[in-house]
Design a protein around this nucleic acid. Structure first.
Lengths: 329, 329
DNA sequence: TTGTATGCGTTATCAG
DNA sequence: CTGATAACGCATACAA
């Protein structure tokens, strides 16, 4: 293919390669001839050949448990934006199962390509396991929800422990005697939003009530909401994400408990629809797109300099809307 | 790398290649030796080299305007699932701008890899343009919202024109004199959900009121809802998607118009949260994940048989919940 | 059944 | 500055 261009331009094959790569100087006249030949033929370099000979890799893999849920999808978008801006292509590999065999085959599939590096979306326990399944030889960074120990792989994170703490403190500051918590599955013990909630409760000298474990989906929040509705001592609920919060609110509404008059509800993530909810949802806003961009930059820095970059952090922000109020008298 | 395995197993390079590809018979004993050598060395074939020499491609590109919004993200998930099951990797290329230069560079970036084919998510006008920007030499299929003319590229579609028609007929059947429509940007003139709404209105002998053009987001639905709330003759609204519907409902609620007592609202897509809305949203359910799977299979069939497959269709389904009722007396 | 040799499309090294 | 030419890692046609 390169040869066709060379023939058409009447130059050698290496001259064409030079004007294309642009590293070595080429005379103006030859450059022009080559460029027009390229345009006329609609020539596109064969990336497989380029990678094979130069070792240059322009693909990064994103390993995630999911690509549809808001946090995951938004992070992926951020990664893709940043990658595209730097001339990188992103491939996705969904890891669905904790089963070592299944995980290995999913990981092997994306690793079978020539990769510049990989990004793991570590929003859940499966992400942690995925990270451990990746070879040390590959540059790997993680987009994480919570702070990690040092010494491991570089990661960009959202400090959702702080988010959980601030939301709880806000609720307590409103006068609630206690705050109940409906939790998404934990990424890791002793970290994350649930841990922040617990820390705030302890700091206020309140024994945290039993956590209601849920999944990520509205239905699961609905179930939790039904249990919560039966207990009239519940006046404030912190939910692990916005989907859970809307399920909780629906169950509360059906049980005749008003939000926020009887019960205050706080979500997590600030999905686009949260502000449109009835009532508009108080929630902890997290910049997932920004997280994705930061994560990619971490990887880009690593591959460019050859040195492991330092992890970066960003803080979520409590957005107060109308689903929270002082407890009933 | 293959050579290392060959040395370790004490066989020739081609024998290793043969047991790995599995097409040519190899004696049991040698096969065993090679396999253990592969395992010990943790050998992974270099996909760039494989592709270069064999022309075999295991990557499909997904070109889409967006990867975050529900319909797009769910379609992408379906594609990825199906691709992974078939041993294909998917790379994503977001096409953000209609500007020919920008589009070309986005397309060129993903096309610079060795691709088995490409899938265009044609849910908007940008998708149509992207489809046109792709070379004829590459197998390309589309995941589309609406029926397309024959003769073009194969596509899997969701018949949202029928969905729009049925939703409108349902509203009319409830006794509403007319149905207003808040539209998402059109993919193409004379097709899609908006066109279905128009067709149902005409069929019922009703002059369709002026369409309220919106974008995809709740905010835009909110603006539309404010306009609609001022017009007391409005009793039924069909929205181009669920986000728009929730914006419309919020504006209606703030204006003191009750749903469904005063105004009926119908959404489109049936996002996970639609059933949890206050009131639960009547909407047209679309199987985006299934669409993605079907689209990938179209492409897989094409690359396997070498023959262009025939387009496939699926029908959306109206899900009646509590945001619709007969008009006020 | 196994080994040897060739070439896939590029980049990079080496002379000119 | 420009042109031959040697890899890159692998699959396969051909020879043994």
């Amino acid at each position: 293919m390169l040869r066709d261009v060379a023939e058409r331009a009447g130059v050698s094959l290496s001259t064409v390669s030079r004007v294309l790569t642009g590293r070595t100087p080429v005379s103006k006249s030859l450059r022009a001839r080559v460029e027009s030949a390229v345009a006329e033929l609609g020539y596109r370099p064969n990336a497989a050949a380029q990678t094979l000979v130069s070792g240059r890799r322009r693909t990064v893999a994103v390993l995630a448990r999911n690509t549809l849920r808001y946090g995951y999808a938004a992070t992926l978008q951020g990664i893709e934006e940043a990658a595209r801006a730097s001339g990188f292509v992103v491939t996705i590999g969904v890891v669905e199962s904790e089963d070592p065999e299944a995980m290995k085959s999913a990981v092997d599939l994306v690793l079978s390509q020539p990769l510049a590096g990989a990004i793991v979306v570590e929003f859940d326990a499966l992400g942690v396991a995925t990270l451990d399944a990746l070879p040390e030889s590959l540059p790997v960074v993680a987009a994480a929800g919570a702070r990690r120990k040092v010494g491991s792989r570089p990661h960009a994170f959202l400090d959702d422990e702080t988010g959980g703490r601030e939301a709880t403190e806000y609720l307590l500051g409103l006068g609630h005697r206690t705050v109940h918590h409906v939790a998404i599955p934990a990424t890791r013990a002793r970290s994350g939003r649930s841990w922040g909630w617990r820390a705030a409760m302890k700091a206020a000298g309140i024994e945290p009530p039993k956590v209601i474990q849920a999944s990520y989906d509205p239905d699961s929040g609905y179930d939790a909401g039904q249990r919560l509705a039966r207990d009239l001592s519940v006046t404030a609920v912190l939910c692990g994400n916005d989907e859970l919060a809307i399920g909780v609110m629906r169950a509360l509404a059906e049980a005749g408990r008003r939000v926020p008059e009887d019960v205050s509800v706080v979500g997590f993530d600030d999905q686009p629809f949260a502000r449109m909810w009835t009532p508009p949802l108080t929630t902890v806003s997290q910049d997932f797109v920004g997280l994705g961009q930061r994560t990619f930059r971490l990887l880009a820095e690593w591959t460019a300099t050859g040195r492991k970059p330092r992890s970066t952090s960003a803080s979520p922000r409590l957005v107060v809307r109308s689903s929270t109020a002082a407890p009933p008298a």
